[in-house]
Amino acid sequence: MVKKYRVFIATICLVLLLTAPVSAFYEAVPEAGIAINGKMVDGIKPIKMNGKYYIPFTNLSRILGYNDIRFETNTKTYQVTDGSTIVRLTMGGTRARRGDEFMNIDAPRWVNETAFVSLDAASSLFNSFVYFKPENGSIQVEKPASRYRVQSGDTLWLISEAHHTTVQQLMAANGLTSTVIFPGQVLKLPPRGQTKEMEPIKEKKPVERVPQQGNTNAELITIAKQYIGAGYKFGATLAEAPRLFDCSSYTQFVFRQKGIQLPRTSREQAGLGRSIPTSSLKQGDLLFFQSPSLYSDGRVGHLGIYIEGGHMIHASSSKGVHITYNVLNNSYWGKNYLFAKRIIE
């Protein structure tokens, strides 16, 4: 009976600790400038908890181009995307999801109805290296990351999977002779030529589509060309179409008009359909590319729709919706090409 009573008291104490106001445990600090690759871009209001800096999650998301932000009130879960990858995290959870990979992070905190993440968690979630610069009190973002700070629960295998490289390449980049690593250790990421994502796991369900009459592929290209000249916005939402697109909202919007439902991000779209060799490409196939200036992990970062003759229509950050001719011979797109998928058989 005494033992059960002690367990009951311990449980009550734990519940009280977990539900106690978080505001009692944080320290307000001055507003900080936030710089990306050395260029000051905005201001942000951090807090300090247990000696660590935490920054507002939604503010940081928008600064980094993750403009599609959704919040599930009942679970206090955020989902954000930049059009390439979906990031999901729940308040208090130490595991977050980036694409189809799980990341170990410091538990996000809920303070004054605002979600805060540590600088290390921000680094993992956004494929960046985020740190505090005491010389001027600023938050610095190295994007894409060339290094990674080890989190509790990490192994070299988990880190290599998240960055689309191998344990051997990680060890070589850091001169490691053992696989033993420890939280807080900063690892160099392998050169970008050694980080390249292959085709993501295929969806278990077929692509949703409504039966169509006529030449669906040709009609798809006709529809796609109607939006040439539309502007580009990183992480654009479908509500902003057809005025603004990012690469995956554009393909989603175009295919939807032929009754074909594609998911939101380029990486999710890469998981659908059938792999096609470049020698067998036909109109309407999707072409996938990495974006080394945005992501150091070699992930799918861009896509477009193949047009007969070796061309591609797509929404790019530099030109909006346009056609790139002889795309696989293009000096930029050719070297960053990953694979092709057929959605319309």
Rank of each mutant, 00 (worst) to 15 (best):
N74P: 02
G137Y: 01
V210I: 15
I313R: 06
I228C: 13
I69S: 05
T195G: 07
K202C: 07
D285S: 10
L189H: 02
L158S: 15
G235H: 02
Y295S: 04
N174P: 03
V180F: 08
G33D: 03
H302K: 07
G301E: 03
S316Q: 07
Y325H: 15
P211D: 12
V22M: 12
Y325G: 12
V254Y: 01
V210S: 14
S152R: 08
Y148A: 02
H163P: 01
D100Y: 10
Q269K: 11
T85R: 13
T77P: 01
S280R: 14
T195W: 01
T11R: 07
R95Y: 14
K45L: 05
N336R: 04
T195A: 13
D297C: 05
G193Y: 09
A121K: 02
L272E: 07
V22L: 14
I55F: 01
D42T: 00
E27S: 09
L262T: 05
A239E: 13
I86L: 11
P263D: 11
D100S: 14
Q140M: 00
L64E: 01
P200D: 07
L294H: 04
T179R: 09
L281R: 05
K143T: 00
T222H: 12
V41T: 13
A315L: 03
P206A: 12
E161Q: 11
G93H: 14
I323V: 15
A121E: 03
E27V: 12
Y53K: 06
T237A: 14
Q252T: 03
E27T: 13
I44Y: 06
F71W: 15
A172I: 06
E161I: 04
K282W: 05
S248H: 07
L272G: 02
I344S: 07
I201Y: 08
G137H: 03
T90D: 08
E197D: 06
A20R: 06
T216I: 15
T77I: 10
E240K: 12
L281F: 06
G92W: 03
V41W: 01
K4Q: 11
F102E: 15
R109M: 15
L287P: 02
V321D: 07
G43V: 12
A224T: 13
P183V: 10
L220Q: 12
T195K: 09
P206G: 11
H314D: 11
R97P: 04
Q79W: 03
T85K: 13
V254P: 00
R256C: 06
D285V: 04
H322I: 10
K143M: 02
P21Y: 05
G193W: 05
M103N: 06
Y250L: 14
I228H: 10
N136L: 07
I159C: 09
Y337K: 10
